[in-house]
Each structure stands twice: as C-alpha cells, then as structure tokens.
Design a protein around this nucleic acid. Structure first.
Length: 725
DNA sequence: TGGGGTCCT
DNA sequence: AGGACCC
C-alpha cells in the first residue's frame, strides 16, 4: 500500500494495543445482561479465572481461590468457565471485526482478549492527506458513529468549512473511498496520557530524546483554536501522529462497544512493548497515550517481570544477578520446588535497577543467548522492533484439556480421551472448516454444500501431567503420532470419529507412555498440530471467494499448480472416505466388516499406528430431516457380569458386550434426551461403575460403544421412518 | 491455579 | 519432546 510521498512519513511506527476488560466476565454478562450489576466471577476448577469490576470493588481478585472469594464476597455470582467455546467464539468475532478496519490486516492476537494493531500506514496516510491541498475536503462535520462509515454530508461545502473552523477533522479508513471514515475534534485529545494531561506542560518538555529525528516541524499549522494544540509540540510530527492514533483508538473502542457491547482498554505508543504497558495505566474502558518523551521514566518504574517477554525464569535470573544468590538456598535433600527465590513482591527489581547496573555484556553472560540479551537491553530502553504479526485465521494448534483430582488407570483415561477427542473434532470443524456459503439470493447455488477444510493438521498429540512429578511446575509428558485421515470425514459424527481415533491412536500413545500412562494423572491434553494450509485456506486469508478458486482452475493462474493439485487430491481423498462412510451407514450398524476394512484400507495407508482389532464402526451420521426427533427417550442398557464389571472380552480394551452373554445384567440406564446435543446424553449410573463403556441396544442387540450411542439411536429412528413410508 | 495459546531449541 | 513465554 502506498501513496505519493509516503516514504518521508515512514519512520516511527504507531502501535495500538487493545485489551477487552475482564473478558470472560464480559462474555457472560452479554449473554445474561441481568448479571451486569452483580458481582460476577468466572470459575475454572478451584479458582476464579476472572471477575467483573463489581466483584473487584468488593475485594474479589483475579485468580483467587473460589473459597476465599466467597468469604470476601458472599453474594458473588459464580459461573463456570471451564469450557472455553463461548469465549473463543466471542474473541474471534471481535478480532474479525477489528481486523476489517486495519490496513493489510496488521492485527495480532494475544490470548483471547488482546490485540496489537500496527496503524502506521493509516496514520501516515491521514497525516499526508491533511498536508495535501484537500485538507478542507477531508474535513466533515461531526456525525454520529452509525453514519460515520457512510457519511453523505461531504458535499455540503458550508458545513465542511464550518467544521474546519471548529477544528473538526476527518479520519479516513479507506485509501480509495474518501467518505469512509470518522470525524473527530482536533481540539480534544481523547482518553488519558502518560504523564497526566494536567501535569503535562508540552511547552517545557524537552525535545524527545529517543525519537528526535521525527520531531521536526513540517510546517502544518492546524486550524484549531485550542491553546493546548497551539503549543510548539503540537507541531511536532510524532505527537500529531500519536494524537491521531488516539482518536483512532477511541473510534475503535467506541465501535466495539456500540456493535458488540464490550468495553475495551487501549494503549497508544510507538512499539508493542510500550503500547501494551501504557494500556494498563488506566484500566476499565479507558485509553492511554504514552508521550514519547516520558518513555524512559515510564519504563523505569516497572518491575522487571512486567516486561512482556521477561517471564518467571528470566526475572529470577536477573534478580539474583542484582541481589546476589539467594541466601540459605535449598535445604539438603529438598525438592526443587522448595528452593528459595527472590519474590517480585519482597524483592522488587525495577527496569531502572537493571538498566543502571547491568551492561549489555553482563546480560549476555547471564542470559542464555546473545539475542535474548540484545532484546532485553532494547526493552530496558524502550526499544522494541518486534513487528505486529498478522494473526492467521488458521490456528497453529488446537488443543483440549481437562484436569483431575485423581485419574487412575487406562480404563478411566479412555473415557476421558473419548470426551476430549470428541470436543477436539468438534473444534476442528469450527476452526478449520470454511465458512458456510452465505445464503444470499444473488449467489447461484454452490456446486456442493460441503464446507472445505482450510487446513489439515498432520499430527495428533497426547500430553499428560502425572499427579506428583518432582517439578517446580507444569512438567508435561507428550507423545505424537500421525493423525489418520478419516477424521476429516465431514458427515460423520464427532463421537464416532473420536472413538476410532482414541482406539487407533490415543490408546496406543497412552500405552507408549509406559508407567506414566497407567499411573495417577492430573491433566490430560489432546491436540492436533502441524497444520498444513490448503488452497481454500489461503483463499479465505486473501478474502477471495473459495468457490471461485475451486470452480475454475483458471482462477489460480499463479505458478502454484502443484499445491492446487495436491489440494484437489486431498479433497478427492476425503470425499472417498466420506462415500465409504455413507455406504456403511446405509448398510446399518451391523457393521459390515468388509466396508470397515475398506475404510481402514483407504484411510490408514500412511498411518503408522493401526492398533487393535477392527470392530466395525457404528457411529455414522446420515443427513436427516430436522423435523423428526429420533431416539428421544429410547432406553439402552449397560450390562456387566456378576461382579458388576464389564469384562474386557476381546482382551483389547474395546469392551463391546455381546447381547447373548447370559451372565450379564444391566448396571446403568441410559436415555437420549436430545438428538442434537450430545452433551445432554443422560446417564444414570445405578451401580457407580465408572468402567461402563459398552451398551447393548435393546432393539437389535448390537453392542454399541458409548460414544456412538447417539448415532445408533438415530439409525433406528431412520429405520423406523423408512418402514412407515 | 485454569484452559488455553505462541515460538524456539 | 520439551521449555520458555503470553493471556
């Protein structure tokens, strides 16, 4: 993106950092507005992930134990936030919204609730625009936010002139459409500044010591009457650019609030580091512009660990370097976790301290790489060249995890794995499948109703945290294996695929972990990684209509023929898998082994892990009429032997219970409540046996794995409807 | 202390 | 495969 004379404006970057206020709590408040006025905490296991500001006013803290929070605030409303789906969805929605405003999509996501924006080009274009003769034409009267995006008053010369006289500016959001943008008042700087606006006498501020090259007055005299802006510093280019950015940040915050009802805090500066730190100065629903000349003193006051990039370990090393090795050390024979360390509260070390006492050479010796030292040295002085990365629409990894007080043995682990992998596959569908074709009347019906995979993960990873490993923290163990292709069958239900995946890859990996896999587990995590982007993915990234890319090969004129062909093969392969699945579904759950083998033949060609017997697959989902309610209230029985245990009949941990086995008796009653929501599958465990994993269908006597229950019930419903015809 | 993520080695 | 960092 360029315009005449752009280069001479391109020196220092302008970065905005946005931070959605107590994000999880805000998501819940938007779902249930009644909670807005109440103290609200979001619970994950034993702690509050976050809480709203009403709760904070009553003494509740982030990351506090739920038990403690309840003491300090007995009327605290607590909502469980262990399932992140809604937060992830809201985060993505906000990100996509903000993204559309920023040229070249220079928008980087950090976690679910933060974004960095590099608005340098937008700011410089608008500055340049003002300097060109069209300053009056780029000025519009104030209009409401709603009409800002398509303001039609531009032609009204009188209003325009009046506006200019009143110091009203117009910020253009589009290079090509001069009407797209918002108006703002040059006379008023939105939000806060650091140092404080009142304390800030711009007239006596020294020329900025670390960006003096950009403070050259370019001669533009803004048509404003406000004293503040008639100081000499207003004439400094960097200041003017930052003021403009403050207005843009204000616009973005207001837009997000009006459109989606989320309050946002923002920091405006020239680097990611300083923008982020500046944003945390004034917090809920406020923004802060860091005045460049104050950068060093601003940074100096921060504790060393506050620098994003300086984590627990690095901060520890730096504190020890300054204060000396911790006295006493670890008692003889104590575990690593008991080693004493300098705490940031008891032994705060500031950026100032480090900057004054540790040279670059010293830092190089203390840190593990010269690069790290150079980066840190820069940060200490407000230098941070890290670019704002365009966050891809496609994640590099998708993972699901759960923690437990105690989880023992392969049997329970399998249950957990099926649950987690089912969620994982559902998430793959949400995050990796192309958006559904928009149902507009103008677009011709697409050749296929199937969504496309934007990317395909090549690897499945299982991670565990053993109950009490001797580690100061985290300590996970992980193993990976190739992800079988059949998980990409788009019309199969997540349960069925999960069952197969756990059987073929999950359990083998678990066994590969040896003793750890059978011992007590505190955490289980499943993930798909190694994303390979497809042509469809690239097209979506570029904002191109996917259907066009695939409809005519001619559209992809670029020399990427190979990649495209590979993608077509990939599509064909997945379709073939889906065809076989469909046939299997039509043949019924009796599970024609030949077909099942066919699936394995197709899908496991390249898989290194093919484990256990082929049991036939039952969980095939077929498209069915939305009107009907199959399987609701249908009774199914879990059976067990006289000891109350499901025997591992085939010795492979698969536990499909034959209906004919005379010694079996029911131990649990299952009833499908809803056909759409798998999570609502109701299970009344009558014996308390956690090992019940197979059920016998009362209709056909077929053994059905729990994960496939829903699909199985649906099969019977389809059968019934066929007979009614 | 949660349930996610990123990149580097 | 693990470690450091981020939220």
């Amino acid at each position: 993106m360029a315009w005449p004379g752009m280069e001479k404006y391109q020196n220092e970057r302008i970065i905005i950092h946005l931070d959605y206020d107590c994000f999880y709590a805000s998501v819940v408040e938007n779902e249930r507005p009644g909670l807005r006025s109440l103290p609200l905490g979001i619970q994950q296991k034993n702690i509050l992930a976050t809480c709203n500001y009403v709760a904070r006013a009553q003494g509740v803290k982030k990351l506090q134990l739920v038990s403690e929070a309840k003491k300090t605030c007995p009327n605290l409303v607590i909502v469980n936030g262990e399932d992140l789906s809604r937060f992830r969805d809201a985060s993505k929605k906000l990100w996509l919204y903000v993204r559309e405003f920023i040229w070249e999509y220079k928008v980087e996501r950090l976690g679910f609730d933060e974004v960095f924006l590099d608005v340098t080009q937008m700011i410089d274009f608008n500055i340049a625009n003002l300097n060109l003769a069209d300053f009056p034409a780029s000025v519009l009267p104030t209009c409401t936010l709603a009409s800002n995006l398509a303001c039609t008053n531009a032609d009204d010369d009188k209003l325009v002139e009046e506006a200019a006289d009143q110091g009203i500016g117009f910020f253009r959001l589009s290079l090509t459409d001069p009407k797209r943008g918002f108006s703002f008042s040059w006379g008023k700087l939105p939000g806060h500044t650091y140092p404080l606006n009142d304390a800030l006498d711009l007239r006596v501020l020294p020329e900025s010591d670390h960006s003096s090259q950009s403070l050259e007055d370019d001669g533009l005299d803004c048509k404003v009457h406000n004293d503040f802006h008639q100081t000499k510093h207003t004439k400094h280019r960097l200041h003017r650019r930052l003021f403009l950015a403050a207005h843009f940040a204000d616009f973005l915050r207001n837009s997000v609030k009006e459109t989606y009802n989320y309050t946002v805090s923002a920091g405006i500066s020239t680097t990611k580091l300083t923008a982020k730190l500046a944003g945390s100065v004034n917090k809920p629903d406020k923004q802060t512009l860091l005045i460049p000349a104050a950068t060093q003193s601003f940074l100096d006051g921060h504790e060393i660990g506050k620098i994003p990039g300086v984590g627990f370990k690095t901060a520890q090393v730096l504190r020890e370097e300054l204060l000396g090795v911790v006295q006493g050390g670890a008692p003889e024979g104590s575990s690593v976790a008991e080693v004493a360390f300098y705490d940031k509260l008891t032994h705060p070390v500031t950026i100032h301290d480090i900057r004054r006492k540790l040279t670059l050479d010293r830092l190089s010796q203390v840190l593990d790489s010269k690069e790290q030292a150079r980066k840190l040295y820069g940060w200490l002085h407000g230098v941070d060249t890290t670019p704002v990365a365009q966050t891809s629409l496609i994640p590099t990894q998708i993972s699901i995890e759960d923690t437990f007080r105690s989880l023992k043995g392969t049997k329970q682990a399998e249950q957990v794995l099926i649950q987690l992998v089912t969620k994982l596959i559902t998430r793959m569908h949400i995050d990796l499948l192309s958006p559904l074709p928009t149902p507009t009347t103008s677009t011709p019906t697409p050749t296929t109703s199937l969504q496309r995979w934007l990317a395909c993960p090549r690897t499945f990873r299982l991670s565990l945290r053993p109950r009490d490993m001797t580690g100061p923290y985290s300590a996970r163990i992980s193993k990976s294996a190739p992800l079988p292709r059949y998980v990409f069958a788009r019309d199969s239900c997540a349960e069925a695929l999960a069952g197969r995946l756990v059987r073929d890859v999950g359990l083998p990996l678990l066994r590969k972990m040896g003793k750890v896999g059978e011992g007590e587990l505190q955490l289980v995590n499943v993930a798909v990684v190694n994303m390979e982007e497809s042509k469809a993915g690239e097209a979506v990234m570029a904002g191109v209509d996917i259907e066009k890319v695939f409809a005519g090969k001619k559209v992809t004129a670029e020399g990427s023929r190979n990649k495209n062909d590979e993608d077509m093969d990939w599509e064909k392969e997945v379709r073939e898998i889906e065809r076989v699945y469909k046939m299997l579904g039509e043949k019924g759950v009796e599970g024609d082994h030949k077909l099942a083998e066919e699936i394995d033949g197709i899908s496991n060609e390249e898989d290194t892990i093919v484990d256990g017997q082929n049991l036939g697959i039952v969980g095939v989902m077929k498209p069915i009429d939305n009107q009907i309610e199959p399987g609701i209230g249908e009774d199914l029985w879990v059976k067990a032997d006289d000891n109350g245990e499901l025997s591992d009949m085939d010795g492979n941990g698969t536990d499909i219970v034959p209906a004919e086995a005379p010694t079996l008796r029911p131990i649990a009653h299952l009833r499908t409540k809803s056909r759409l929501d798998f999570s609502e599958l109701e299970m009344e465990d009558e014996v308390g046996s956690p090992s019940a994993r197979g059920v016998v269908c009362p209709k056909c006597g077929m053994g059905v794995l729990l994960f496939a229950l829903e699909a199985h019930a649906r099969f019977h419903e389809m059968e019934r409807r066929e007979q009614e015809k």
